[in-house]
Each structure stands twice: as C-alpha cells, then as structure tokens.
Computed example of a mutant assay.
Amino acid sequence: MNYWLVKSEPFKYSWEQFNKDGRTFWDGVRNYQARNNLKAMKEGDLVMFYHSNEGKHVVGIAKVVKEFYQDPTTEDTNWVVVDLAPVETLKNPVTLETIKNDLFLKDISLVRQGRLSVMPLKQNEFDRIIELGS
C-alpha cells in the first residue's frame, strides 16, 4: 500500500462536500509531477485530504477506489483522474503550522513542495499525521 496527500481549496471542493458525495473523481490536476503521482496511485491506497489556502490543514482520510483514467473534464489525453472515497474525518484537523513544527514531519513534500497538489507520503509520515489528528 502507498500513502498520498491531495489538496483542495475548500471553497472549490471541501471535505464536507466530499463526504456528502461519498465518492468523486479527482480532476483539475494540471501539473505533470502531480499527474504522475495520480498515475502511481493504486486501488486501496490511503490519501490525506488537505484544505489549502483556507484553513491549511489535513481534515480527513480517503482511499483510492479506482485507478487512473482519462480526465473527463478535458479532451487533452495528458491529464488523468482517480476515484476517491472518504474513509474517516480526523478528530482534530492537523494544521500546516503543526506539521512544519513537528521535527518528524518538517521535511515532508507538503512543506518542501508546497504548490504540488498531489504528493506521496511515507507510511510513518501518514501515521504521524493521524496521531496528531487523534
């Protein structure tokens, strides 16, 4: 199993809306590195859901329920989506500030490549964020 983090601006697509929908395809990725990360996702992988711009915190855990396919919002075959489903809301959202101040997490992709919208996490990084959100 692999672990990931995806970012969404809550005014565009929030964790709350994701939970109401029950499943979504993760579209709008227009960065090649983020696209390659989508292509690397496998069914069953776990995904942190991060509210960017407003809030700036990890709010929940999702899982990959369908591996990559052509992004239905564009005819450009360079872009793909995966289907995600919500798994669990974190009891306490984990802020970017908390992550930056945690010695164990200070070098994760969210800190090093802040503009990247889809990024891998190591299992121990994923577990640490869950621990902080409990």
Results as ranks from 00 to 15, higher is better:
14 S>Y: 14
14 S>V: 07
15 W>V: 08
17 Q>I: 04
17 Q>V: 05
18 F>K: 09
18 F>G: 06
18 F>N: 10
19 N>M: 15
19 N>K: 15
20 K>H: 15
21 D>W: 02
24 T>Q: 12
25 F>E: 06
25 F>D: 03
26 W>L: 05
26 W>Q: 09
28 G>M: 13
29 V>H: 00
30 R>K: 14
33 Q>W: 13
34 A>L: 14
35 R>W: 00
35 R>H: 03
37 N>M: 13
38 L>K: 03
38 L>H: 01
41 M>K: 13
43 E>Q: 12
45 D>F: 12
46 L>S: 13
47 V>S: 10
47 V>L: 07
49 F>Q: 09
50 Y>T: 07
50 Y>H: 15
51 H>P: 06
52 S>R: 15
54 E>V: 10
54 E>W: 04
56 K>L: 07
58 V>W: 07
58 V>G: 05
58 V>H: 08
63 K>A: 06
63 K>H: 06
64 V>F: 10
64 V>Y: 04
65 V>M: 00
66 K>L: 05
69 Y>H: 00
69 Y>F: 01
71 D>E: 01
71 D>A: 00
72 P>N: 00
73 T>W: 00
74 T>H: 00
77 T>Q: 11
78 N>E: 06
78 N>T: 09
80 V>C: 00
81 V>M: 14
81 V>G: 13
82 V>I: 14
86 P>A: 13
87 V>G: 05
87 V>H: 09
87 V>D: 11
89 T>W: 03
90 L>A: 04
90 L>Y: 03
91 K>D: 04
92 N>T: 15
94 V>E: 13
95 T>M: 12
95 T>Q: 13
95 T>D: 10
96 L>K: 08
97 E>Y: 10
97 E>C: 09
97 E>R: 15
102 D>H: 03
106 K>E: 09
106 K>H: 09
108 I>Y: 08
108 I>C: 10
109 S>N: 12
109 S>A: 12
110 L>Q: 07
111 V>S: 14
111 V>H: 11
112 R>I: 11
114 G>W: 05
114 G>V: 05
116 L>Q: 14
117 S>E: 04
118 V>C: 08
120 P>Q: 09
121 L>G: 06
122 K>W: 08
122 K>P: 10
126 F>S: 14
126 F>G: 06
